[in-house]
């Protein structure tokens, strides 16, 4: 492990060479939007919102998965990146059925927050209006697939922190869904411990506790970071 110095958005910053661009940026108050990333969970690199420009490569690199190195020059906020991020958010809205006004997470939703922060004021791609289901078979929780953005935080927290691996992803492409056990109803699950970690880490209103009405579902995902730190980081 060595200490390196680098530039993010023309600011001189320093970090260890086993840290990622995202970690260093956040330490220094530089905001890079993310949706699939959650401190304490493994890196998915799936939402592509945290892509940044790094001098010396024509490829955009995911800040969550890219380690810093000496002399790196990073730009996190160009017009091109903002445009890509907006379109990605628009794609997420168009892909599902997101109706904020009736959603349990209205006002506490990370997809909604990202859209506001990036100035997404209309959806420029056609809505796909998919037919998706709601699984309310679990005693305490429910999942509304219409609101799922497939960040797979639930899959990771269930496997990596709870150790149950109830959640996984089934099917592929635009048909992909998070599933419990062998794509059987959540309420019938033999593996689910009903710990509710998946609900707490879900960035949208897809996973919710029963009994919540519109706007009432607030979530605390910070426990993951705390639990992982207390158990001793493995990686």
């Amino acid at each position: 492990m060595t200490v390196v110095t680098l530039k993010i958005d023309d600011r001189d910053v320093s970090g260890r060479d086993d840290e990622t661009i995202l970690e260093i940026a956040r330490e220094n108050g530089i905001v890079i939007p993310t949706l699939c990333y959650l401190e304490g969970l493994s890196i998915a690199g799936a939402c592509r919102l945290c892509l940044v420009e790094v001098k010396g490569t024509s490829k955009l690199l995911p800040a969550c998965a890219t380690r810093v190195s000496e002399g790196m020059e990073i730009h996190t906020n160009s017009e091109r990146l903002t445009q890509y991020r907006r379109t990605i958010i628009e794609m997420l809205f168009a892909e599902g059925n997101h109706i904020c006004s009736v959603c349990v997470s209205n006002g506490h939703c990370q997809l909604q927050d990202a859209a506001v922060a990036l100035g997404v004021d209309h959806i420029g791609v056609p809505y796909l209006h998919p037919h998706r289901h709601v699984d309310a078979s679990h005693e305490l929780f429910g999942i509304d697939h219409n609101r799922c953005i497939l960040c797979a935080r639930c899959v990771r927290v269930c496997d990596e922190v709870e150790g149950a691996h109830t959640w996984d992803v089934g099917v592929r492409g635009i048909e992909a869904r998070v599933v419990t056990d062998f794509s059987t109803p959540w309420g019938d699950s033999d593996t689910c411990t009903s710990c509710g970690k998946c609900v707490q880490v879900c960035p949208t209103g897809a996973l919710f506790a029963k009994g919540k009405s519109a706007g009432e579902m607030t979530k605390q995902s910070e426990f993951v970071e705390y639990l992982v730190a207390m158990r001793g980081r493995r990686s």
Partner: peptide, 21 residues
């Protein structure tokens, strides 16, 4: 590409479906 996309990342999962449409 749309039917063979794994569905993990947003641009490929949604983008290929949008382009196909």
């Amino acid at each position: 590409c749309m039917s063979e996309s794994c569905g993990k990342c947003v641009p490929c999962r949604v983008g290929t479906a949008q382009m196909y449409q």
